[in-house]
Amino acid sequence: MISSNKIADQDFENVALDFSELPDFKSVKTQGLHRRYLTVLRCRLLFFFILYLTGAGLVFFFLGLPIQKFLLIFSGPLLVFLILFVEFEIGFHKRQIGVRSHDLYYTRGFFYHKETLVPFKHIQHVEVSQNVILKWFGLYEVIFYTAGASAGDLNIRGLDESTSRKLKSIVMQKNESDESNEQL
């Protein structure tokens, strides 16, 4: 492992561009999601947890499984709930949005940390939407579509109205001004 590191390091220096002078994406100022969205996540988890408990209870009482077998089968989903709980509680504050002068930065995840960067000029269009649950809480979802399959799209859930409108207008404006620059 060590030897291959060294080779890669040497190679890295060969590039004409000075890497330390490039704008650093980690230094972007970020903003979290709206706190109400944490409530949404908690409620959803609680809802499914209660659903699961009822299901498990019914199975236990009516099928009369031996307790060891029952625990073995039902501990799997329990683990999933635990992981999701930790992910929401600790990971919620890791969901951060940052706007740089040419791109959008979104990071999330505790167990599996992801950072996505989308250049403004590759955003095809922006969608602001709400499902029923988000509507109850007065929150919005903003989707930034890039070209091609949906995998590259950026999906940000749990923003309040002003932030989501602002994000949308920033992107639309940036694309507009980019084009007007090109026209000059």
Partner: peptide, 14 residues
């Protein structure tokens, strides 16, 4: 032609 970039890291990788 790159549309977007994602850097990801599991806690084991971290």
């Amino acid at each position: 032609k790159i549309q977007s970039i994602r850097v990801s890291q599991s806690i084991f990788q971290k």
